[in-house]
Structure formats: C-alpha cells, structure tokens
C-alpha cells in the first residue's frame, strides 16, 4: 500500500513536470530576418487582419486609436482587448521579432501565453514580409495611454500555462484546402485564413474550442449570443463570386439587405482594400469544398 502511494506520488510529479514542460512558451523569439517593413503596405495588412476591429478604443470614432478595452463575453469568461498602440501601455519597445512571436505564436515578449481570443492560430501563417509591414504601420500610429484592463475568467482558464497545452493539441499548420491551381484562389485563402481569420467564427468548434477542420467555414453558433454565424460552403451559400466581393465592399447582400453583427466591422475594413483583394477572397470562398 505504502509502495503504491509512493509510485502514485512519483507518477504525479512526473506528469506535472511533463505538463509544465509541454505547456512552456518558446523561450526566445525566433530570429527575424528580412528587410524593414513598409508602413503603407502594413495598413493593408492591418485592415485585412481586422486588428482595429478588436483593439480600437470602444465608444469613440477613431479606428486607429488602439487603446484596447473592448470586452468579449465567452463561455470561458470575459476577455478584454489590450492596448496595441505604440505607447508605453502598448507595444512601445517591442522589436519586430516580438511582434512576430505575439501574432504568430501567441506569446508575449515577457514569455507568457496569450489566450486564443487573439486569433494567432490563424495569424501563424502570416508571412515575414507582411509582419514587418504591419510592424512599421503600427509604430506609425498615435500612442494611447489607456491601461490594460485584464480579463475576468473562470478557473481553470485563469492558468495561462494551460494555454500551452491547448496550443500543442489544437493549433494546426495550414488550413483545410490544399494549394489550388488558381493563384487568385491561393491569394484569397491567405487573405481569408492567415489575415482575416474568417474560420475563427465561420468554422464550428468542439467543447475544447478546437476548430472542426472537417467542417471548414460550415457555419457555427454565434459566440456572441443568439443566432448562427452563416456557412460559407458552396452547398449552403448560393452567392456568386461577384455577390461576395460586392458584399465585402458595401455590406449589401444579393437581396439588398444589410450586413449585421461583427461582419459590419469586417466590411468596414474590406471596403478600404483594393478590389483585387475582395475578388480573391470571393474566389477562395467559391472554391471551398462542400460540406
């Protein structure tokens, strides 16, 4: 009996140690090689990625005031977007490698995991060039003094190390569709997945919050409450590529009804992108495999 307890205790310690190691963030930012970014190009990456839609200070009209504070109620608790302006409460002092590690790996410069409310599982495919451009653009914006408001989460989600295990289990390389023959479809796949992170809402999740890759863009319950996020797969969405591009520009559906919910923010961003970007996303949506 005593022996069994000793073995059990040893096993628990070993398991704890293994979990501790498995949940650890990568210790140092990966070296980031490449030319300095271009802020004008970064504005496009910023819009396509929807950074401002979550990080802009709520309750005011300037979409480039990135003081954070927007609250997101979820089953895990309430998340609040942090300040990502180039001020001392934001990303002042960050290197481009720090930004790359935050955006692609979900790890802060001081080595803590970010919660996946920050869609790094999608952004992980962002190219070095786009990240460098985004970095240059973010640094060109006005600093904002708003302090970080923190999250209100329920136990055990308060343990950030848990996110490390979640990442190991559920963050996957790439996205569902294989490289297509049409470069416009591939460009659209990059825009829709690596930048616009459409799948974060349009793809259903399991109880652990993992995206169901067998049902990519097949629609999901609305995380913000009532209703459903619509399916974009061709079996469910009867829109033409031109309909989709027009919707992303004007917010008008083929029935000339107006967009609602979070898509309003997405359209405000996409309306400012070149027509070619909207057409590429439309081409990708039309190329999705049916459910």
């Amino acid at each position: 009996m005593r022996r069994a307890v000793r073995v059990g205790a040893a096993a628990a310690v070993a398991l704890g140690a293994a979990l501790w190691c498995a949940s650890a963030p990568a210790t140092a930012p990966a070296p980031f090689a490449g030319p300095p970014g271009d802020a004008a190009q970064g504005a496009r990456i910023f819009l396509a990625s929807g950074c401002g839609s979550c990080h802009a200070t709520p309750g005011q009209d300037d979409p480039l005031r990135l003081g954070g504070g927007m609250a997101f109620a979820t089953p895990f608790g309430t998340f609040r977007a942090p300040n990502i302006s180039p001020g001392s409460e934001g990303i002042a002092g960050w290197s481009v490698a720090d930004l790359a590690r935050a955006v692609r790996e979900g790890v802060s410069p001081d080595g803590r995991h970010y919660y996946p409310a920050f869609p790094y599982a999608s952004y992980r495919a962002m190219t070095d060039g786009d990240l460098a451009d985004l970095y240059a653009y973010l640094l060109s914006l006005p600093p904002d003094p708003a302090p970080d408001l923190g999250h209100d989460l329920a136990f055990p989600f308060t343990i950030r190390r848990g996110i490390g295990l979640w990442k190991r289990a559920f963050v996957h390389e790439g996205w569902v569709m294989a490289e297509a023959a049409d470069p416009e479809v591939n460009r659209g796949a990059y825009l829709a997945n690596a930048l616009a992170h459409c799948g974060e809402c349009h793809t259903p999740r399991n109880a652990a919050g993992e995206l169901d890759r067998g049902a990519w863009m097949a629609g999901a319950p609305n995380p913000a409450g009532r209703g459903r996020i619509p399916a974009l797969t061709p079996d469910a969405l009867g829109w033409s590529a031109s309909d989709i591009a027009f919707y992303l520009e004007t917010g008008l559906t083929p029935a000339y009804d107006s967009a609602g919910g979070h898509m309003v923010a997405v359209i405000a961003n996409f309306a400012q992108l070149p027509e070619a970007d909207r057409r590429a996303v439309a081409a990708y949506i039309k190329a999705l495999p049916p459910r």
């Binding site: 209703g227 008008l252 967009a259 609602g260």
Partner: peptide, 23 residues
C-alpha cells in the same frame, strides 16, 4: 453610385445592428 451605396448601407446597418433580431 457604388460609392454612395456604401453610405446607404451604413445607415441601414446602424439600426439593424441594435434593433433587428438575428436571422
């Protein structure tokens, strides 16, 4: 017309977001 449609749709959205039940 294309440019003006964005403004019109924006006016529709302003109300639909707050005052129309989801589909």
């Amino acid at each position: 017309i294309g440019a003006a449609l964005g403004g019109l749709a924006g006016a529709c959205k302003a109300c639909h977001d707050a005052y129309r039940t989801p589909n």
